[in-house]
Amino acid sequence: MFKFRAKTKSNGLAVVEADGYRHGNTHLIDLRGVSKSYATAAGDFTALRQIDLLVDRGEFVAVVGKSGSGKSTLINMITGIDRPTAGQVLIGDTAVHTLSEGQMAVWRGKHVGVIFQFFQLLPTLTIIENVMLPMDFCNTYPARERASRAMALLDEVEMTEHADKLPSAASGGQQQRVAIARALANDPAIIVADEPTGNLDSKTADAVFQLFQRLVDEGKTIVMVTHDDELAHRAGRTVTIADGLIVGDTGQGNGGMVNGEQLMGNG
């Protein structure tokens, strides 16, 4: 276990000093005892229960589980889209759970690239403008360099010829490639993808997966929620969630836990 010594720095961020990252965490992603409950009309609903998860730099993690198992809530903790009711979320040098909304937005824009199932490109921006948008918001690259960087990213996903078209002119697979380019705009260390191939045919899904693998090879860390067993298998590590608990993890000693296939009824 790590030794924690919490203190507050002048910028107001809670910082944890330890042997690895600034907060004492040794892994890029370190979730410690994370729980999340929601108040609903039918009473409190617990989406995550005391989750511990460590993901190292350069890992490709697939998160699997049934609908409502807590997959999306888990990755929302990593992206800072949602906050834990209890526990700590340490990403690199940042104690994400302590950030304000404004700090969170800037941090996320710079450090995490998010990819959605339905691509979520802004319909009135061209493809290149969609890719430039994160740089615009986070002011990460000089304004005159943004277009060329966006073109370079589009080149990586083979979408340069569509750069000046609206997203509606692109197919689903093409849109997802643009969404990946957008996720890479600020050169984040982590890519989080929520069912990125869920809306694509198998051939296109395979192409997207290959793109992910290339990114991992280049040193990016990818956490991907998926329903696709085959894709999950191809990822380096599979984390299985059921009822808000991690019930399987191929990257950790999983003891007597069921594996993902058993849980999803496929095995």
Binding site: T124, E129, M132, L133, A147, S168, A169
Partner: peptide, 22 residues
């Protein structure tokens, strides 16, 4: 599908969005 090519502007994307939304 609208595959019309849109002329690139010098406007930052967020302001391009404002104008196109209008």
């Amino acid at each position: 599908m609208n595959d019309r090519t849109i002329k690139r502007t010098l406007l930052p994307p967020r302001w391009a969005k404002v104008l196109r939304d209008l």
